[in-house]
């Protein structure tokens, strides 16, 4: 059992510039978060907007440097400092965003999007890069022929498959997925979630999966972290968090999440009938 990614006391401060009548200030968006994820497992981070999920994701994905605390990837302390992460480190961690259209360059063919990470981070020759990209397209449920198409020719779900394929080109150990299925329709979301499960099994991938949707988190997570206002208010195994939430905020989140429980619907319908009858009487 090995820990792929570990955070200790991670904090992130944003400096917000002042205006004419506003002093500049510092906002602490992540307030000392600890976690560790084992290889092949999924840590899901759930919370409402502004709770600091994306800020934490960007630290873990080596996009932003943390203000405080330590980040370890495969046992080594990582400090991206002011420079870019090394090739080896960059290859280990990749990120997938909510809006695949935003992360794919509309003027770049799918093939170029997929081979670009190899061009920048490996010494593979052109034909090998192309072969790897076409094989990856098949892996994520697309076709080799899609290599020469542009992103706008694909549906939202297909574009998210392309973004996942691109993230996997460097054989990463860790994938950070920030609301990666949140913009997808239910049916497409189910397909992408299945794909993520297949890929995790095949490549023994570790996921940090960020979502505001509790039902998706319940489906995909091994471990769950609940964030509120920059703090991890609750952490535990999926079953522990979902069957016996400890923190009042977690309970509030569960209570607010609409569910399709038949008995609950039956009770609500009966309540409404009674209220109507009372109103008429």
């Amino acid at each position: 059992m090995s820990i792929v990614v570990e955070g200790k006391g991670l904090t992130q401060d944003y400096h917000v510039a002042g205006g004419l009548f506003r002093p500049s200030k510092t906002v602490r968006a992540v307030k000392g978060v600890d976690f560790a994820v084992e290889r092949g497992k999924t840590l899901a981070i759930v919370g409402e907007s502004g709770s600091g999920k994306s800020t934490l994701a960007r630290i873990v994905a080596l996009i932003d440097r943390q203000s405080g605390g330590t980040l370890r990837i495969e046992g080594e302390d990582v400090d991206i400092g002011t420079g870019k992460p090394t090739r080896a480190l960059r290859s280990k961690v990749q990120m997938v965003f909510q809006n695949p259209y935003g992360s794919l360059n509309p003027r770049q063919k799918v093939g170029e999007a997929l081979t670009e990470p190899l061009l920048l981070n490996s010494d593979l020759d052109g034909p090998t890069r192309r072969e790897k990209a076409e094989a990856m397209l098949e892996k994520v449920g697309l076709q080799r022929a899609h290599f020469n198409r542009y992103p706008h020719m694909f549906s939202g779900g297909q574009r998210q498959r392309i973004a996942i394929a691109r993230a996997l080109m460097l054989n990463p150990a860790l994938l950070v997925l920030d609301e990666a299925v949140s913009a997808l329709d239910l049916s497409v979301q189910a397909q992408v979630l299945n794909l993520l499960a297949d890929l995790q099994e095949e490549f023994n991938l570790t996921y940090v999966f960020i979502s505001h949707d509790l039902s998706v988190v319940r489906y995909i997570a091994d471990e769950v972290m609940v964030m509120n206002k920059g703090e991890a208010v609750e952490q535990g195994s999926r079953d522990a968090v979902f069957t016996d939430p400890q923190h009042p905020y977690t309970r509030q989140l569960f209570a607010a999440t609409p569910i399709t429980d038949i008995e609950a619907i039956r009770a609500r319908v009966a309540r409404r009938k009674a209220a109507r009858a009372a109103a008429l009487a």
Binding site: L186, S187, A190, L193, A197, D213, S215, R218, I259, T260
Partner: peptide, 23 residues
């Protein structure tokens, strides 16, 4: 039926049924 079965909260096994067959 397909839409309802794609709901993650109703998932019973490891995989979610998808609507693709219907599509």
């Amino acid at each position: 039926r397909a839409l309802l079965s794609a709901l993650p909260e109703l998932a019973t096994g490891d995989r979610l049924p998808t609507v693709s067959d219907y599509f």
